[in-house]
């Protein structure tokens, strides 16, 4: 390891040891600069704002919210809750959809644009290309979840009162603790999306048509959720990707209930390792012609 790497200077480094971060940074910039991805990010960030406005309108018109889920009712009492609610509402479909688009595009997009072979001409190695692509997907997921929670909390605080938050256990927590839990939830959601991203990157190595990869990846959480509803398959349920996608409530208990969350982290790490290794094998084997 050279000294320039240790101090992290951008360096007149020899070509073979380009800084580990620069490749990733440029990749992430590419993902974030793509108009399609920015559009999705905008829609996701706007969702909590729309929910907040709708709740505001219904609560000021004095209608009972008898049919609304209880956690949405909490928002009227404390705006900060909207950060949690936004994540809960977007996790079953819209967040994984955005991740499917980004991860499904990762390799297949380069292949269809004819840029994959140029990427592989630089002596970066296919494994490193894959790692960078995956890391940029995961970072995109983290940025999305953090932004969704932030937009929810800011909207909630602006439209409703923002004081202490009452947890499901009836305990009241202050602003700092609320922020910490929101960050934990966003991080957990990002890990869930990271598991899906590994599948997405793998599917993306299989085809040169990005749309096909995106559609396939988007179907996977839906399929997993359907399987999760079939009681005869209960033996399979703990292994399903989406089995631990709805445990966000456990972050809102005092003390935090870690069992299902820990299981979720482990399953998603398992999914990520398995599918990344398959993606690596596929990319190594493949003749890159475009």
């Amino acid at each position: 390891m050279s000294t320039s790497e240790l101090i992290g200077a951008p360096a007149p480094a020899p070509t073979r040891t380009a800084l580990p971060g620069t490749f990733l940074a440029s990749e992430l910039k590419l993902v974030l600069r793509r108009r399609r991805n920015l559009g999705m990010l905008g829609v996701l960030v706007a969702a909590p704002i729309v929910i907040g406005l709708a709740l505001r309108a219904s609560s000021s018109s004095g209608e009972g919210d008898g049919d609304a889920p209880a956690f949405l009712g909490e928002v009227a009492g404390n705006g900060l809750f909207l950060g949690f609610s936004g994540l809960l509402l977007l996790m079953p479909f819209f967040l994984p959809l955005a991740m499917s688009v980004v991860s499904g595009d990762s390799i297949a997009g380069e292949a269809s644009a004819g840029t994959l072979r140029y990427l592989l001409i630089v002596p970066a190695g296919r494994g490193r290309l894959l790692a960078t692509k995956y890391a940029s997907c995961v970072l995109f997921g983290l940025i999305t979840t953090v932004l969704v929670v932030t937009s929810g909390m800011v909207t909630g605080a602006a439209l409703f009162s923002a004081g202490d938050v009452t947890l499901l256990s009836g305990t009241t927590i202050g602003f700092g603790e609320t922020l910490w839990r929101a960050l934990l939830m966003a991080g957990y959601a990002a890990v869930l999306l990271g598991g899906l991203a590994a599948i997405g990157v793998f599917v993306s190595t299989l085809t040169e048509v990005p749309v096909a990869a995106m559609a396939t990846v988007a179907a996977i959480p839906v399929l997993s959720q359907i399987l999760g509803l079939i009681p005869q398959l209960s033996w399979l349920h703990p292994w399903l990707l989406t089995d631990t996608w709805s445990v966000f409530g456990d972050f809102l208990r005092e003390p935090i209930m870690t069992e299902a969350i820990g299981r979720g982290l482990l399953t998603h790490a398992g999914y990520a390792v398995i599918f990344l290794s398959f993606a690596w094998a596929r990319l190594t084997m493949r003749d890159i012609t475009s």
């Binding site: 390792v273 290794s277 690596w280």
Partner: peptide, 13 residues
């Protein structure tokens, strides 16, 4: 044998 790697990893996990 690149496919041996994911096979081994899957089996291990």
């Amino acid at each position: 044998r690149p496919w041996a790697v994911p096979a081994i990893i899957t089996a291990t996990v």
